[in-house]
Amino acid sequence: MTTLRTRVAAYAVIADSERILLCRISAQLPDLAGQWTLPGGGIDFGETPLAGMIREVNEETGLAVEPIDVAHVDSFVRPTPERTTHHVRIIYRARVIGGELRHEVSGSTDRCEWWPKDSLPPLVDLAEIGVRLAFAV
């Protein structure tokens, strides 16, 4: 019997007029490894989406951020033989208020970089949404 699960995650679009902050997916997720995504991830039980976004961004990038607004919410269902997961994604626009950019160690991402909007790396769909939100493309 397939298990049903809901996963709520919160992410940040951190950008200026010319560049966006993205994180490279690590080998921990072999199907997506090497592609780039928005910083963020799953929220912990009892954690608000906003607190989860702030924590996840800090874990993945070393940066402290504050929200500007909720930019996008979506959801989709992904079935596998073992489990069917309903993914809910909340994307905030955010600005950096402190910290120093660094790479996550032993996590779902392994590198974070600022990318110019006209020279982006291979993106997962979440990052494509973030680029559209950041640059209205």
Rank of each mutant, 00 (worst) to 15 (best):
M1C: 12
T2P: 15
T3M: 13
R7Q: 14
V8Q: 09
A9W: 03
A10H: 02
Y11H: 14
Y11N: 08
S17N: 02
S17H: 13
E18W: 07
L22C: 07
R24E: 12
R24F: 03
P30V: 00
D31A: 15
D31V: 11
L32H: 10
A33G: 10
Q35K: 09
Q35I: 00
L38W: 01
L38T: 03
P39C: 06
G42D: 04
G42I: 11
I43D: 07
G46A: 03
G46H: 01
L50S: 11
G52S: 01
R55F: 05
N58F: 08
T61M: 01
G62F: 07
L63I: 01
A64I: 00
A64E: 14
P67E: 15
D69F: 04
D69G: 13
V70C: 09
V70P: 00
A71M: 06
P79C: 05
P81W: 00
P81Q: 11
H86C: 13
H87L: 13
R89C: 05
A94P: 05
I97D: 05
I97N: 02
E100M: 01
E100Y: 04
L101Q: 13
R102M: 09
S106N: 15
W115R: 04
W115V: 09
K117W: 03
K117Y: 03
V124P: 14
L126H: 00
I129T: 15
L133H: 06
